[in-house]
Amino acid sequence: MLDLGIDVLFKGTNFLRLLQGLWVSIEISLISVVISILLGMIVGVLMTMNNPILHVALKVYLEIVRIMPQMVLLFIVYFGTTRVFGLDLSAEASAIIVFCFWGTAEMGDLVRGSIKSISKVQFESAYALGMDKVQTYWYVISPQTFRRLVPLSINLITRMIKTTSLVMMIGIVEVLKVSQQIIEANRKISPNAAFGVFAVVFLLYFMVCWPISRLSNYLEKRWV
């Protein structure tokens, strides 16, 4: 039979360790996603305002996030800040900061796009009925923005989950790092493990992301 090298996962606590690694990935993504969504909503609303200074500042922010590879950001925050600012950030904290920095910008841009896509007459109809700005946003604009936002932000969430695989570069032992450790440790007895273990990692990522993207499909159909 073809040796896929999956057997190493059943040795000792290997599979449990893999799941623990997965949990680390999920934990970092979950915290980052929640913070990014909340901050992103605020940034998104700020982006739609007609303040020129704010506009330029947020534009620069968004461009920095788009241009910089996430890995560079991780290195700057984790390795770079320690000596320069005397900050002793843990790897997890650094990862969450970077992911929030990234997620907030992207989420803000999605929120901005969703608000902008709502026609001006929607605002004016609400104003014409005597609603003030807060009431207009609360009852009329946000519910519509939210519906357009869900599929877009779910796409961002799955991207963030996948990108957490980078955090092993700053020493966090997440699912990918654990799988490397398992493969390295069993190189002699089970040389095919690279295939089997990474295939399982692939399945794990799939199991996390697939339900989320199904949910997005479901909501999209329900709300159109």
């Binding site: 007459v121 929607q122 004016e124 014409a128």
Partner: peptide
């Protein structure tokens, strides 16, 4: 906002609020 309650306006592009039923559209304000 107080004054606009005295002035009803209907626009050319019939913009009801798409996420609300007819009745909810009417009673919202």
């Amino acid at each position: 906002t107080k004054l606009r309650q005295k002035i009803g306006m209907v626009f050319q592009s019939y913009e009801l609020f798409p996420h609300m039923s007819v009745l909810d559209n009417i009673i919202l304000a």
